[in-house]
Nucleic acid binder design. Structure first.
Lengths: 240, 240
DNA sequence: ACATTGCATGTTCCATGCAATATGGAATTA
DNA sequence: TAATTCCATATTGCATGGAACATGCAATGT
């Protein structure tokens, strides 16, 4: 455990800063799954009182990151394969819906530009550079940007919120003491996966621009389904 | 404003009881849309301190019922037609997914019994009784029970949570000072709508029991789409 | 041995006082 | 008059102490 960590002052309230700090602790594995979170301990560690800690925990609870028991407090949610796969089911359904809606109602010019640029950058990363942890991270961020751009374009808070919730689980999965580095395990497979993902993205974008709603939806669902299967394989790896 | 209201002691903590009390105030129209919620006022009215009120407001905010501004507080979220229709888009997609998953993996015996019983009761309500506000309310509860049974059977917290969020909006819609009583406006239309909903339910159940995933999904989506269109008509009624 | 009851302990839950700040209008200026 | 600055005020945000309560263990009884 690190000593008293200073909170970023960039967030307007201590509660929000505290929530982000605790979230980071969970995702980094500093706080383990199933561990009870004591308010006083967190408050001391973060240099705030128990009040903003309590608010932050409630916030993360509503986000689905923690579980709660009256007069016992909060702890990092534990989950099994069914829960993880279920999260992917919801996610692919909702992101598929987003693509169809965008295709049917048309994409804004700004998003169209962003998506095209994103695809060009992603292609460059994948095919003009060596596959190192650094390029892999750049690819991961570009990948996220693509999905976020479409979510934003869909302009549906319920859809966005639902997707964001399902995204919490996979990072927790990797927050184990010995996170699984797929790139180290299967560098070629990992790169092939990324290239396939890029081609999926391109086809989704093509379908949207052509106004092919059903195709855009199906393609996005298939795209995320691939990730779902990968997650399942990793999960079985961890269990065995 | 009523005098100091005693909170139900049935909930384990004051915060939760307070959240439910405030939710009821919003849905009953006692608190109007766009109105700022002052913590001290609510605390006095409910006979608690500001702490549980604050927690309750944060809770309802995360549920999507309120909006929040730093150092200003919370107020009942205002919404437009796009947001409401978007909520229905998400809801029909997710409940459709639930039906498909259940059809594919098979329904538990307990749920099968419950669904069959629910359909029998609903049919009785609709075809063997006069259409009064009282029977209408009984139908509404039976209708809700059907949807909840399938949500429970799907056993996917992300799906359930997403649907519950979308359900918050329509009640707010009716929380205006002069709620729209569709039954009073169009009693025949209202009953016809309910009967159509019943037949939809029956077909969904039939498809699920037959293991027809795609049909179950499509039928549930169509079923909720009908409600979506009704909501849209009501909304235009309110604006004009 | 096993179940049940009572209790000590640690933690959450809540009340309250003070500090921080967003806001609306008065005072000021061009 | 219109725009701008400044400030009083109301309200939230936060800290802290004490009440309430779940839990695990020891004592007691069957």
């Amino acid at each position: 455990m690190t000593a008293k960590t200073a909170l970023k002052a960039s967030t307007p309230t201590r509660s929000q800063a505290t929530a982000e700090a605790i979230r980071a602790m969970i995702l980094s594995g500093e706080i383990e799954r199933g561990e009870w979170l004591r308010a006083q301990v967190l408050a001391d560690r973060l240099g705030v009182s128990r009040t903003p800690v309590s608010e932050a925990l409630g916030f993360l609870y509503k986000e689905g990151l923690l579980e709660y028991r009256v007069h016992r407090g909060y702890r990092v949610k534990t989950f099994d394969a069914d829960l993880l796969l279920g999260a992917f089911d919801v996610r692919l359904t909702l992101e598929g819906l987003a693509c169809r809606l965008i295709a049917e109602r048309g994409m804004s010019h700004a998003t169209a530009i962003l998506v095209r640029d994103n695809l060009a950058r992603t292609e460059d990363i994948l095919f003009n550079h060596e596959w190192t942890p650094e390029t892999r991270e750049r690819w991961r961020l570009a990948n996220l940007e693509f999905h976020d751009a479409l979510l934003t374009e869909a302009a549906n808070p319920y859809l966005t919120e639902g997707v964001l919730r399902t995204r919490q689980l996979p990072p927790i999965l990797n927050s184990a003491k010995e996170p699984i580095d797929t790139n180290e395990l299967f560098p070629r497979l990992d790169r092939t996966f990324s290239q396939q993902a890029f081609r999926d993205h391109a086809r989704v974008a093509e379908a949207i621009e052509a106004g092919q709603g059903a195709r855009a939806e199906a393609m996005m669902k298939e795209h995320i389904f691939t990730t779902r299967e990968a997650a399942r394989r990793i999960l079985t790896l961890m269990v065995s």
